[in-house]
């Protein structure tokens, strides 16, 4: 465990807590949040942590896996079932066809994986899926034009978590002899690149002190 990875996990946790805060603090409204992105994230955690009960790595690892699975399912449940939240969710705006993304990631996982076993194929699937899971959210933000600051911070923390993970991989590459995780590294780079344009507009809006506008 190194500080970059720990900081990455904490900012990832923060992004999820910001979302939960947004849903409850704004009187349980889910405006500007993409349910599809939240469902994809829940699937990422469920398919990645299949080894939760078979491979014990550390207490920290096990606890964080439970927290990520529970919190992501809580957000999906809340946006689907909670009487107030589901009313504020704008499904006409959240129309990204995420089925294609699911299919593409699964086919890619069948082709590109470390070992052809059930767990490894689903682990690779979860890595690819995480890279593109933010797309429905970014499309929704572009559609709705304005980004309220909690949602903006949510995406910002998610990007920070990925950025810190890339530094963690660079650090591990130089400090550990046999550290190679090509699938996670390449996929993580793609994911961080997806955030880059959002960061650019976020920085512009912060610098010019105007409301964050994403080009439609």
């Amino acid at each position: 465990m190194n500080i970059f990875r720990f900081a990455g996990d904490m900012t990832h946790l923060m992004s999820i807590l910001i979302l939960l805060l947004k849903i409850y603090a704004t009187k349980s409204c889910a405006v500007g949040i993409s349910l599809k992105t939240q469902e994809l994230y829940a699937l990422v955690f469920l398919t990645r942590y299949l080894d939760q009960f078979t491979d014990y790595v550390s207490l920290y690892n096990s606890v964080m896996k439970v927290v990520f699975i529970a919190s992501s399912l809580a957000i999906v449940w809340c946006m689907r079932r909670h009487p107030l939240v589901r009313k504020s969710y704008d499904k006409d705006l959240d129309t990204f066809r995420h089925q294609y993304v699911l299919l593409a990631c699964f086919v890619l996982a069948l082709l590109l994986h470390e070992i052809f076993t059930f767990q490894e194929v689903f682990w690779a699937f979860s890595i690819y899926l995480e890279a593109v899971a933010i797309l429905p959210q970014l499309v929704l933000l572009q559609r709705s034009g304005n980004v309220d600051n909690l949602t903006g911070q949510y995406v910002l923390f998610l990007g920070a978590y990925r950025g810190l993970y890339i530094i963690n991989w660079i650090y591990r590459y130089f400090t550990e002899d046999h550290f190679t995780r090509w699938i996670a590294c390449v996929s993580g780079l793609v994911q961080t690149a997806l955030y880059a344009d959002f960061f650019y507009y976020y920085y512009l809006s912060w610098k010019t002190n105007t409301k964050l506008k994403l080009p439609a």
Binding site: H12, Y56, V57, N61, K65, W123
Partner: peptide
Amino acid sequence: GRRNVMKDEL
């Protein structure tokens, strides 16, 4: 085993 070592990240 090998799997443990490689999959120590979240």
